[in-house]
Lab assay of single mutants.
Amino acid sequence: LIVDEAINEDNSVVSLSQPKMDELQLFRGDTVLLKGKKRREAVCIVLSDDTCSDEKIRMNRVVRNNLRVRLGDVISIQPCP
């Protein structure tokens, strides 16, 4: 998924579009594992966002710094076991 700027300022939340959440079989409030660069990982709570496009994930600056990614970078997402 492509990293995009978050609207809310919550450090533990990322936003996906509802069709993408359905495709990944995620529900609102699920915890997910995000994988960024240099084997960096972060655990976040996923919320749906109608304004977010299907191929993007919204996260704020703190999460991006933790993953060592910038806007427009590609990250992977998976549900936490």
Rank of each mutant, 00 (worst) to 15 (best):
I2P: 00
V3A: 04
D4K: 04
D4S: 11
E5Q: 07
E5T: 07
A6Q: 13
I7T: 08
I7G: 12
N8Q: 11
E9D: 14
E9I: 07
D10F: 07
D10R: 06
N11R: 10
N11G: 09
N11Q: 10
S12V: 09
S12A: 14
S12G: 13
S12N: 08
V13D: 07
V13E: 06
V13C: 14
V13K: 05
V13H: 14
V14M: 01
V14W: 01
S15P: 02
L16R: 01
L16E: 01
L16A: 02
L16N: 01
S17N: 15
S17A: 05
S17I: 01
Q18K: 10
Q18F: 05
P19D: 07
K20W: 03
M21T: 01
D22G: 07
D22Y: 09
D22H: 08
D22E: 10
E23G: 08
E23W: 03
E23C: 02
L24W: 04
L24T: 02
Q25Y: 02
Q25F: 06
L26E: 00
F27L: 13
F27M: 10
R28V: 13
R28A: 15
R28E: 15
G29K: 05
G29P: 00
D30L: 02
D30S: 05
D30W: 04
D30Q: 15
D30R: 04
D30K: 04
T31F: 05
T31D: 04
V32T: 01
V32W: 00
V32K: 01
L33W: 06
L33N: 02
L34V: 10
L34A: 04
L34E: 00
L34F: 01
L34I: 15
K35H: 01
K35G: 08
K35R: 12
K35T: 15
K35L: 09
G36K: 03
G36P: 02
G36L: 01
K37P: 07
K37V: 09
K38H: 09
K38D: 07
R39T: 13
R39E: 14
R39N: 05
R40D: 08
E41V: 05
E41G: 04
E41R: 06
A42N: 06
A42L: 09
A42G: 05
V43K: 12
V43A: 11
V43W: 13
C44W: 01
C44A: 11
C44L: 11
C44N: 05
C44Y: 08
I45W: 05
I45M: 06
I45K: 12
V46G: 03
V46A: 13
L47A: 15
L47V: 11
L47T: 07
S48I: 13
S48C: 15
D49N: 04
D49W: 00
D49C: 02
D49P: 01
D50W: 05
D50F: 05
D50S: 12
D50E: 11
T51G: 11
C52D: 03
S53Q: 13
S53M: 08
S53T: 11
D54A: 08
D54P: 07
D54Y: 11
D54S: 09
D54Q: 04
D54W: 04
E55Q: 12
E55N: 14
K56S: 14
K56L: 10
K56T: 15
I57F: 00
I57C: 02
I57R: 00
R58F: 05
R58S: 04
R58T: 02
R58V: 02
M59H: 00
N60G: 09
N60C: 05
N60R: 03
N60P: 10
N60L: 01
N60S: 15
N60F: 01
R61N: 08
R61P: 12
R61C: 12
R61T: 12
R61K: 15
V62H: 14
V62M: 13
V62S: 14
V62L: 12
V62E: 12
V62A: 10
V63M: 08
V63H: 03
R64E: 02
R64Y: 03
R64C: 05
N65S: 13
N65W: 06
N66V: 07
L67D: 01
R68D: 09
V69L: 07
R70L: 14
R70W: 06
R70Q: 06
R70G: 14
R70F: 05
R70M: 08
L71Y: 03
L71M: 12
L71D: 08
G72Y: 04
G72F: 03
G72D: 05
G72W: 03
G72M: 03
D73F: 01
D73M: 03
D73W: 03
D73S: 12
V74W: 08
V74A: 13
V74N: 14
V74E: 14
I75T: 02
I75Y: 00
I75H: 02
S76Y: 07
I77Q: 00
I77H: 01
I77G: 01
Q78V: 14
P79M: 08
P79Q: 15
C80V: 09
P81C: 04
P81I: 05
P81L: 03
